[in-house]
Amino acid sequence: MSDNDLFVPATAPLAPASVEAWCFAFVDGQLLLQEGQVLRPSEPPAAAPRHYLGRLGALDSWTMRLDEVPSGWEAHPLRAAMRVLPEPLMALASRAAQVLEWDRAHAFCGVCGTPTAPVPNERARRCPSCQHTVYPRINPAMMALIWRGRELLLARSPGYTPGSYSALAGFVEAGETLEECVHREVAEEVGVRVQGLRYYGSQSWPFPHSLMVAYTAEWVGGEIVPQPGEIEDARWFDIDELPGIPPRFSISGHLIRDTADWLRSRG
């Protein structure tokens, strides 16, 4: 990682502030781009509700919500915009979207309904009446790629792009470990049993507020039985005959490709 890719999170600008700043501006949940680039004004609009994110390389970074798209800029769905951004900016766009949504969703206290206020020097909102404090939260979710010999078990949910498949995924329930979640979700979604869980990696995922934790697991028994309403189709694919899979901007895209390469290396 180069110094330009190093991100240092913060809630207030360091001194001195950078002359230019990465600015992740959103209109109705869509990210503003100009010729595929993130908006970088030296002085963000003063009237826009904005939040400082930290410093990426030598530049400060902000996120803000605008009422309308400025002249010369285009609004793009976040998922599509993330595909065209380099990885450091992709991660920042994810962070920016989640901070803005957290701020919007907690403008009022969830306990007593009083308008909340930002907490100085913290990423938090506090109720002045009952002192209930809310920090940005994420929902842990597991992802499991099951392998058997030279095959990978891939599935598709209703609404996927036609012909596209991915690894299994699901949210962690209260009181459940990540490993317990893998075994439960695999059994529920496709009806098979696995062993030998291996941690692969994680990715912050802003759809809506998740931390995707990815594993590989070896099939140990059971026939595929797709869960009605959740899994439209699931099947075994040879590593040299994979269907459409997610692009590399998502951890599932990396997980599937890297696991296929690993299985090829085993012969």
Rank of each mutant, 00 (worst) to 15 (best):
F26Y: 09
F26C: 07
D28Y: 00
Q30C: 10
L31I: 08
L33S: 06
Q34W: 02
E35P: 04
Q37Y: 09
V38P: 04
V38I: 15
L39M: 15
R40H: 14
R40F: 01
S42R: 11
E43V: 10
P45C: 00
P45T: 07
P45A: 00
A46C: 05
A47V: 06
A48V: 12
A48I: 10
P49I: 06
P49C: 10
H51E: 11
H51T: 03
H51P: 03
Y52W: 05
R55K: 10
L56P: 04
L56A: 05
G57W: 03
D60A: 12
D60S: 10
S61H: 02
T63Y: 09
L66D: 11
E68T: 08
P70E: 13
E74W: 01
L78R: 11
L78P: 08
R79I: 10
R79D: 12
A80C: 07
A81E: 10
M82R: 14
M82L: 13
V84Y: 01
V84P: 04
L85V: 07
P86C: 05
P86E: 13
E87A: 12
P88Q: 10
L89T: 00
M90R: 15
A91W: 03
A93R: 02
A93V: 04
S94P: 04
R95K: 07
A96E: 06
A96K: 03
A96M: 01
Q98C: 08
V99Y: 03
V99G: 02
E101M: 03
W102C: 02
D103H: 09
D103T: 06
R104H: 13
A105K: 11
H106G: 07
H106D: 12
C109I: 12
G110F: 09
V111N: 15
C112N: 11
G113H: 11
T114L: 01
P115T: 05
T116Q: 10
A117L: 14
A117E: 15
P118E: 14
P120V: 07
N121S: 13
R123C: 08
